[in-house]
Amino acid sequence: MENRIALKKGLRDGIPIALGYFAVAFSLGFMAKKCSLSPIQGFIGSFFTRASAGEYGVYTLVLQDAGYLSVVAMSLITNLRYLLMSTALSQKFSKNTSLFKRILTGCCVTDEIFGISIAYPGYLNPYYTYGAFLISTPMWALGTTMGIIAGSVLPARIVSALSVALYGMFIAIIIPPSKKNKAVLIAVASSFILSYVARNSETVKKLQLSSGTVTILLTIFISALAALIKPIDNTPKNDNEENRKEQK
């Protein structure tokens, strides 16, 4: 009974997430289309992965025909934050939560679902997370598929305009913490500059590094440097609060 209430609550709280997902996934579908994914590949990939930046990164690797190892590295790096989120979520479970429920809840983690799950009063009832997952995931997968199909139907001018939607989302994620935290601002600005330099670097061209590999290397380098120069005090909590605010 208690589980059913939690499930219903999750389904309800998942509605706005589902709507947002559809829109973002639609523009992700455009990228996937450019990287020559089929609608069914987009659906399966999105349904089981559910990670905008991660999927985007991997799809660019598909386009570049990069090695399989770089797909694993890309998935690890672009989704490292899930490691942090799942770690935070592990503190929300009551001690007797079964291994199966832990695994299932883990698979549900996205920025948004983590945000509402961590805000659940008291111990997390996994059914709440399942509810949000059940309503939002089909929309994420469907959005990707529709984007891939629409990418070949819509006029070039509209496709060009919609291609920046995903970047718009990325910008909206990185700017608010940059405004609040100078270290993040400097890290973001350095990322822009170094990414641009790497893109036009003769050395990178000579070494034949794919842009995906460059993304991974730059991320590790800049993040490690930032962590050394400006270590932070109690991050997981800060992150949770930000996610919670976005939800409201």
């Binding site: 920046v164 990185i174 990322s191 822009f192 170094l194 993304t215 800049i222 270590p231 991050t235 997981p236």
Partner: peptide, 23 residues
Amino acid sequence: RFIVSFLYYVPYVTLAVMTFPAI
């Protein structure tokens, strides 16, 4: 502390690197 800090910066740095000049 280093690992926590590193994990904190990673999402922002990755997204920034992937946004420009790709956009």
